[in-house]
Amino acid sequence: MLFVVAWPTPVDVGSRGLIFRVLRMLHRHGVPEFVNYNVIEFTANFAMFVPLGFLIALLFGPRWWWAALIICAGLSVAIELYQYLLLPDRYATVRDVVANSTGGTLGAVLALAPIAWHRRAQE
């Protein structure tokens, strides 16, 4: 995650042509047109934060699992500020904050099952 966040240029810059070719092929084979580059980028940002939210929720446990939501959102804002202020070739967007925060939230919610299981096992 740190590698992707701190890279000085967009990490997909060398593969955009391939991404667009694959998207055209998928569209020709029935994938809806709304599945475009922006959807793929949003999904990648979302997916990058799911494990983080999961791990933070596990770390904080049953009483404070929700802190993962705040931590993931705060980290996302910090990342976007870092990119905006220090990486002129990167794009800082609110959409990335939304994607990252939503992914972190899903990860934290998914952690509730093992948290509950562990809690029951200890009773």
Rank of each mutant, 00 (worst) to 15 (best):
Y84H: 15
G17L: 04
A99H: 01
M25L: 13
F42S: 04
P32S: 02
A67F: 12
V50S: 08
P51F: 03
A73Y: 04
V22K: 05
F49M: 15
A99E: 05
S15Y: 14
V97H: 03
E33D: 09
G17M: 05
I71N: 11
L86N: 08
A73E: 11
V31H: 07
V11N: 14
P62I: 14
P51Y: 05
V31S: 00
G14R: 08
F46M: 04
I56S: 07
G107F: 04
A92N: 01
M48K: 04
G74H: 13
R95C: 00
R16K: 04
M25Y: 09
A68I: 02
L87Y: 09
R63M: 07
M48W: 06
A73G: 11
R28Q: 15
Y84C: 05
V50R: 05
L58A: 08
T102P: 03
A44R: 01
G104E: 12
A78Q: 03
A78T: 12
D96W: 00
S76A: 08
Y91E: 14
W64G: 09
Y82D: 00
T105C: 12
G61I: 10
N36S: 01
V50G: 04
A57V: 08
A47R: 06
V31C: 03
S76F: 02
S15Q: 14
Y91G: 10
D89T: 09
E80G: 00
G104N: 04
E33M: 09
R95T: 13
S76W: 05
I19A: 06
N100R: 12
L69P: 11
G17S: 10
R24V: 14
V39T: 14
L26F: 12
V35F: 13
L75Q: 12
G30Q: 00
I19N: 05
F42P: 02
L87A: 06
F46T: 06
R28E: 15
A68L: 10
N36W: 03
H29P: 04
F46G: 05
H29G: 13
S15N: 14
